[in-house]
Amino acid sequence: MDSLVVLVLCLSCLLLLSLWRQSSGRGKLPPGPTPLPVIGNILQIGIKDISKSLTNLSKVYGPVFTLYFGLKPIVVLHGYEAVKEALIDLGEEFSGRGIFPLAERANRGFGIVFSNGKKWKEIRRFSLMTLRNFGMGKRSIEDRVQEEARCLVEELRKTKASPCDPTFILGCAPCNVICSIIFHKRFDYKDQQFLNLMEKLNENIKILSSPWIQICNNFSPIIDYFPGTHNKLLKNVAFMKSYILEKVKEHQESMDMNNPQDFIDCFLMKMEKEKHNQPSEFTIESLENTAVDLFGAGTETTSTTLRYALLLLLKHPEVTAKVQEEIERVIGRNRSPCMQDRSHMPYTDAVVHEVQRYIDLLPTSLPHAVTCDIKFRNYLIPKGTTILISLTSVLHDNKEFPNPEMFDPHHFLDEGGNFKKSKYFMPFSAGKRICVGEALAGMELFLFLTSILQNFNLKSLVDPKNLDTTPVVNGFASVPPFYQLCFIPV
């Protein structure tokens, strides 16, 4: 009986604490739906499609509103004006990374994606500088992407125009580009180590996009005490870190300090320079996690976009025909596509942009946080508050993009057929937390897609009208449904 009384008292205290925290903070924060004790607004949000729920709530509470995930307040920004004001106009104040408990377990605050403060700034600055020195957006990395595009075309030829699921092959190409940047090595598509790495990356994007992960991140005790797919994700990350550590040891034994070959060499050189400046942010643990982040951000996002792009091109054969006509006119058949071609191919450029806009790969991006107490639109948001960005509300804005739910390359073309930029184009987020590999991803999408369409016609196994382009999961990332196609050599 005594234990029951204690339990009831504990629960009562928890409920009172929950109510007090919510009521004391709500006077400062933007308005929002009334949260339930302990669980907050979790029942009012469709976990399978958070973005749709945010759109519905914005119609009631406006472009800036507050939700509670458990006891934790989260300020939501919906629509271009609110997102721009926060991420661009007040970029420094909104540059923090929001709480992501599962990532905390995986990387302990290291790396480039989930770190904060001085650690994040130094690692991000170093990573950007190193990638630029190796030619991100310049010639040397373009050579690597072109080489991988040629290998991709050869792998597709091996399908002999038979029906195939493109998931694996389209994942190999961007993964190999990242391998060449980090390890100075590309792998054969049949290499077992490479296959294991690909498998872990593919599993992780599916797990991260599941409703279960949303629950884990908002009720963090689940991570330590409950079984579930989150444990598989943590094991996959541990596998990748151990693999990278092996490569780091190989580099330490063979590195030429006067001739760095890749990202690992550059990081080890930085560690050597910083060894007298303790404590340094440049450690082996930081290198492991930064490399894992580059793999995660640079492989599955690009391969998922490529997979979605081919599905949309199957669905819209008239678009595919126009792209192939432009390829034939500008590039021809006797040389590989290059980035200089893009400025002469406005329709193809528009298609690449429209694919990214339409699929809305990361509907709410990753959570941000404010780095200080900030007054925002007459609300006071306390330091450390998590900020949720609705990228969907920007990419699918119906004023900027008429009929935003329709796939239409003319969203990025003017009346004369010239490519038209849009400030609403934010597939990689915006501001200080914009994806480090934005330029690389854009290069890969253009070169891989043009190389495929230069060499193959795409054949659907069903009537294009019957192809479903609805994402199968739409949590962290929008993942396309399973499909097969035939690559018919031109």
Rank of each mutant, 00 (worst) to 15 (best):
F376S: 02
G431T: 04
K119I: 07
V292Q: 11
F267Q: 03
K375S: 07
I141Q: 04
V5S: 15
Y483S: 01
A350V: 00
L29C: 04
Q252P: 04
T229W: 09
P101T: 10
I207N: 09
K118E: 13
F401T: 04
M257S: 12
G98C: 13
K190Q: 08
S115P: 08
V323T: 08
G27S: 12
L90I: 04
G91P: 08
R26T: 08
T290M: 12
M129L: 11
F69M: 14
T159G: 05
S210T: 10
R21I: 08
D360A: 13
I50E: 02
L294K: 01
E154S: 09
R329T: 09
E400G: 07
N107D: 08
R329E: 12
D49G: 11
T301C: 10
I181H: 02
F239C: 13
S451G: 12
V330T: 11
V462P: 04
V64M: 09
G111W: 05
L11M: 12
Y347R: 01
L156F: 09
Y424P: 04
R124M: 03
F187L: 06
E203P: 06
F219A: 04
L453E: 01
V462A: 09
I50Y: 14
G228R: 06
E92C: 07
I222S: 06
G416S: 14
G437R: 03
F183Y: 05
L71G: 12
L9M: 07
P101Q: 08
D2N: 07
S209V: 05
K28T: 14
K52L: 11
C10Y: 03
G32E: 00
F168Q: 15
Q356T: 07
G332P: 02
L287F: 04
E326I: 03
A149G: 05
S23V: 08
D224G: 07
F263N: 02
I387V: 15
Y225G: 07
S478I: 13
P317G: 07
L314H: 01
F263G: 04
V76Q: 01
P480H: 02
E354Q: 00
K160W: 07
I178E: 01
L9Y: 10
K383Y: 03
R335T: 05
R132E: 08
G296Y: 15
R150Q: 11
N258P: 06
G417L: 10
H230N: 07
I39L: 12
F65E: 01
T305C: 03
V5W: 14
L152P: 00
W120I: 05
S365C: 11
Q454H: 04
F295T: 03
N218E: 09
F126I: 09
D408E: 06
N107H: 15
A439S: 14
C338R: 13
D2T: 09
V351F: 08
I213H: 15
M271V: 10
G416K: 12
F65G: 01
N218Y: 13
P337W: 01
P174N: 09
D373T: 07
P30S: 01
V76R: 00
L19G: 05
I452E: 00
N258A: 13
R108E: 11
G228N: 05
N176V: 00
L447A: 04
G298S: 06
N133I: 09
L67H: 03
K235M: 09
N218D: 10
V64I: 11
V323L: 07
S58V: 04
S254G: 10
P221R: 08
L9G: 14
K72N: 07
L71Q: 10
C164H: 10
H251N: 06
S422K: 05
E199T: 13
E199I: 13
D373L: 02
I123D: 05
E281R: 09
R139Y: 11
L447K: 00
L447G: 02
G111Y: 03
L156Q: 00
G384E: 06
P317L: 05
L445I: 04
I222T: 06
A350Q: 01
L156R: 00
F267K: 05
T167L: 03
V351S: 02
N202H: 13
T301R: 13
K421A: 12
N217P: 12
P37L: 04
M240N: 03
Q146R: 12
C164T: 15
E155N: 08
Q356P: 01
G384M: 05
M269H: 15
G96L: 14
K84L: 07
Y347L: 05
G431M: 07
S95D: 06
I99C: 12
G27L: 12
N457V: 08
F487K: 01
D143H: 13
L208Y: 07
P33F: 00
I207W: 08
K118D: 13
A321R: 12
L395E: 12
P174T: 15
I45R: 02
L313I: 02
I215A: 10
W20V: 08
A161C: 14
N474L: 05
K48L: 10
V145S: 02
I215K: 02
K399V: 14
K420S: 06
K52G: 12
H410D: 15
V6E: 06
F110E: 10
F126V: 07
E85R: 06
I50T: 10
P337H: 00
I389T: 10
G332D: 05
M443N: 03
T392L: 04
D49M: 03
M255I: 08
Q22Y: 09
A350T: 00
G417H: 07
L29D: 02
K200L: 14
D89V: 12
S209R: 11
R157I: 06
N474G: 14
T371V: 08
S12E: 01
T34S: 15
P163Y: 05
H276G: 12
L461E: 15
N378T: 07
L453V: 08
P30T: 01
L152V: 04
K48S: 12
V76G: 01
C10R: 01
K121H: 14
R342I: 10
C151S: 09
P402T: 14
I213S: 12
L11C: 13
I327N: 01
L77K: 01
G296C: 13
S3C: 09
M271D: 04
I213A: 13
R144P: 03
F94V: 06
I99Y: 09
L29V: 04
